[in-house]
Design a protein around this nucleic acid. Structure first.
Ligand code: SF4
Ligand code: SF4
Lengths: 162, 162
DNA sequence: ATATTAAGGATAAATAATATCCCTATTATA
DNA sequence: TATAATAGGGATATTATTTATCCTTAATAT
């Protein structure tokens, strides 16, 4: 059970978009080059972000993506669910209904304890992701990235931002 | 990102094994019939439990599986990891190393903030699963299952246990 | 006009999950 | 002692999902 690599891509792209000055856009092409990713496929991840309303887009030369909200209002969960979907990791195939001792007329109401416990674990995972925003991430990245590299990277980005 | 259905199977099988009297074994065949599952494939899940040391097995007619520990000592996490593996849901493809601004001689030390946050969420998930044991599950199932069905099921099970 | 962009449909390739088949060694029991 | 039932495990097939590419369309800055 492994998340799509698009989740990692989307998180890194959002981290870059967070640092973009007001009103500027960054294209798929630039984001793909910066991260060494296949442009067309990265595009699908960015489209997911767009459909989820996390980014704004504009067309034409100098077009691309920018955050639709302030970094403090976008959580990891928003991004992960936009790309990965909102399905729970534990899906219930109702195998208890195959029990040969089950009366024909009996009908279970609601999920059993197994499902409820697994879903609580999923919720703990989501709760953690909900508690971290892009501005938290930016703060951490600034602290752990060498100052020169951070500066060079955003100079590179601004050179390509529309 | 969805767990293998074998996880659900293993949890339900362990719930049944929890209720088995001391020293009795239950075969793959019986567990497969009880849950309406493909016997050969369920067998793989049970082998995973066996390799993880969660169940004991014995061969021959009247052979099968029993818990290797008391129900209070087996957690959901033990079972989930036995079947699903211990890999984290977020895997790191080190895409930051593709940054064109990165000096050739630079070498990142340790995972970045993105990875650490995602792994903390994974850990919250595991922590929840670690906090629930098979005896907790049994208590919940007894409470929510009609008494007659529970009794009939274990009568059926004991009729097939070696 | 032209070049560049996001969006999205179609499709292919690679990987992982699901499932079946078959053989071996072990063991209870008839 | 012979027989039937069992777990373990290797090989392989089937199906679903993930990853990736290609191409068309409509919008837009220059
Ligand atoms: S987890 Fe519970 S609800 Fe889901 S199939 Fe198993 S028994 Fe039914
Ligand atoms: S998550 Fe962090 S450590 Fe993992 S690849 Fe992306 S940048 Fe590197």
């Amino acid at each position: 059970m492994i998340l799509k690599s698009q989740v990692e891509w989307a998180l890194h792209c959002c981290a870059i978009l967070s640092g973009l000055p007001e009103g500027r856009y960054l294209s798929t092409k630039a984001l793909a080059e910066l991260h060494g990713l296949p442009k067309e496929y990265l595009s699908k991840a960015l489209q997911s972000l767009s459909q989820a309303g996390l980014v704004d887009t504009t067309l034409g030369p100098s077009g691309g993506y920018r955050l639709a909200k302030s970094p403090g209002q976008v959580t990891f969960l928003d991004i992960v669910e936009a790309v990965e979907g909102e399905t729970r990791t534990f899906v219930c195939n109702n195998i208890r209904t195959n029990n040969p001792c089950l009366p024909d007329d009996y009908c279970y109401s609601g999920p059993c304890a197994v499902a409820r416990i697994m879903w609580e674990a999923d919720e703990a995972w989501r709760e953690k992701l909900r508690s971290v925003t892009l501005s938290d991430l930016e703060r951490m990245l600034v602290r752990e990235t060498p100052a020169k590299l951070w500066k060079d990277t955003f100079a590179w980005v601004l050179g390509r931002a529309g």
